[in-house]
Computed example of a mutant assay.
Amino acid sequence: MSTRKGRVEFEDDNGRMVRYDRHANGGGLVSPDARASAEAQIARTAYVEAGATVGDRTRIGAWSWIDRDVAVGSDVVIGTHVHVGRGSRVGSRARIGSRARLGAGVVVEIGAHIEEDQIVDDHAVVPGRRRTRRGDQGLAA
């Protein structure tokens, strides 16, 4: 492993050289082929892989891994030791608890909550939380 000016390089299990840049806010490892907002906070031991995007004010906890081609919206909170599987989509204001595992191609709708230790199967949809309007308390007429 080598480092220079915020860049970390090492050989992966397949013998390929992989590179990451340290994110300015938290020091997390972000692929040069990913886009992470400067307003996001990415823990020093978190990874954001190539093709991924991370929105404004999103927080990614320690030891979490945002896999390839994942889109994470704004104001998302991702706990520690979380894996968001390849090609998944996480809507704005979602909350993902520590140690959760999301399979490939998962859709987490806006405002959804995933509990700690929850496993979400490949291609599942996690519904968002419905906001009630004033006067709408879910009562039948």
Score class of each variant (00 low, 15 high):
13 D>W: 04
13 D>L: 04
16 R>I: 01
17 M>R: 04
19 R>L: 04
20 Y>H: 09
21 D>G: 09
21 D>W: 05
21 D>Y: 11
22 R>L: 13
22 R>S: 10
23 H>Y: 09
24 A>K: 11
24 A>F: 03
25 N>T: 07
26 G>Q: 03
27 G>F: 07
28 G>F: 06
29 L>D: 04
30 V>P: 03
30 V>N: 00
31 S>N: 12
32 P>Y: 10
32 P>E: 12
32 P>M: 04
33 D>Q: 12
33 D>L: 08
34 A>Y: 04
34 A>T: 09
34 A>L: 05
35 R>E: 12
35 R>M: 06
37 S>D: 09
38 A>R: 15
38 A>S: 15
38 A>K: 13
39 E>K: 15
40 A>P: 08
41 Q>L: 10
41 Q>K: 07
41 Q>P: 04
45 T>S: 13
46 A>D: 01
46 A>I: 11
48 V>P: 01
48 V>A: 02
48 V>F: 05
50 A>I: 12
51 G>Y: 08
51 G>F: 02
52 A>K: 10
52 A>V: 07
53 T>R: 07
55 G>F: 04
56 D>Y: 07
57 R>Y: 03
58 T>A: 01
59 R>I: 01
60 I>Q: 08
63 W>F: 12
65 W>I: 02
65 W>M: 03
66 I>M: 01
67 D>V: 06
67 D>T: 02
68 R>H: 11
69 D>V: 01
71 A>V: 13
72 V>K: 11
73 G>A: 06
74 S>H: 14
74 S>W: 00
75 D>Y: 11
77 V>Y: 02
78 I>S: 02
78 I>N: 02
79 G>D: 08
79 G>H: 04
80 T>R: 14
80 T>W: 01
80 T>N: 12
81 H>Q: 06
82 V>D: 07
82 V>L: 05
83 H>V: 14
83 H>K: 08
84 V>P: 03
85 G>S: 10
85 G>C: 11
85 G>W: 09
85 G>P: 08
85 G>T: 02
86 R>W: 00
86 R>T: 14
87 G>W: 08
88 S>N: 13
91 G>H: 01
93 R>Q: 14
93 R>G: 01
93 R>C: 07
94 A>Y: 14
94 A>C: 12
94 A>G: 13
95 R>K: 14
97 G>R: 13
99 R>N: 15
101 R>S: 14
101 R>K: 15
102 L>H: 14
103 G>V: 10
104 A>N: 15
104 A>R: 13
105 G>R: 05
